[in-house]
Design a protein around this nucleic acid. Structure first.
Length: 176
DNA sequence: CCCTGATTCGC
DNA sequence: GCGAATCAGG
């Protein structure tokens, strides 16, 4: 893809609006977020430095790539996590629970008000191909958010909301 | 692991 | 000039 004047302008506009590089890349199409970031730098557009709290300052330049990178180089240090999670509820646990529940309760009452698996309260801008896009609450209300739990493969919903989304009419089973 | 932007450097 | 690879931080 070429950086036509139009595309550059759109880039500037979106960047100025505070969209993330990946989002801009998505809208422009045909480019990766890296391409966008690279272009932003080349254009000397103001980065997001310390403002929003994203970036941390000063980078020690560059270590020493020098030699070709062996595959083993990547397989280093794993995060030494020793602390257990404070909350005992994981998405998986909840999924299991709802799995059994759903079989007994054919139709969960009040989709929006019902107890929902720990939503991550994601903003619209944070949704990805792997996050559940089930809306929760009133869009007019400011507590509106999306489920955001892990959704399998490219499914738009998590395993729980998938059932609600594609609820088969109970009668369909007795066909024929 | 998902995401973010920043930097380097071969092309 | 371009952007993948890489890094660093959340």
């Amino acid at each position: 893809m070429n950086w036509t004047d139009e595309r550059v302008e759109k880039l500037k506009k979106l960047w100025a609006e505070g969209l993330s590089a990946s989002q801009i890349a998505a809208q422009l199409g045909g480019v990766s977020r890296n391409a966008v970031i690279g272009k932003v730098h080349r254009l000397n557009l103001p980065g997001r430095a310390k403002a929003g709290g994203t970036q941390t300052a000063a980078r020690p330049k560059r270590p020493a790539p020098a030699a070709p990178r062996p595959a083993t180089f990547q397989a280093r240090a794993v995060t030494p996590r020793t602390v257990a999670r404070p909350t005992a509820t994981t998405a998986e646990d909840l999924d299991k629970d709802f799995d059994t529940q759903a079989e007994r309760l054919p139709v969960p009452a009040n989709i929006n008000n019902a107890v929902v698996p720990s939503s991550r309260k994601l903003e619209l801008t944070q949704l990805t191909e792997r996050t559940c896009k089930w809306p929760i609450g009133d869009p007019l209300n400011d507590d509106f958010h999306f489920c955001g739990n892990e959704s399998p493969d490219n499914s738009p919903y998590c395993t729980y909301h998938q059932r609600l989304a594609y609820q088969p009419s109970a009668d369909r089973r007795r066909m024929r």
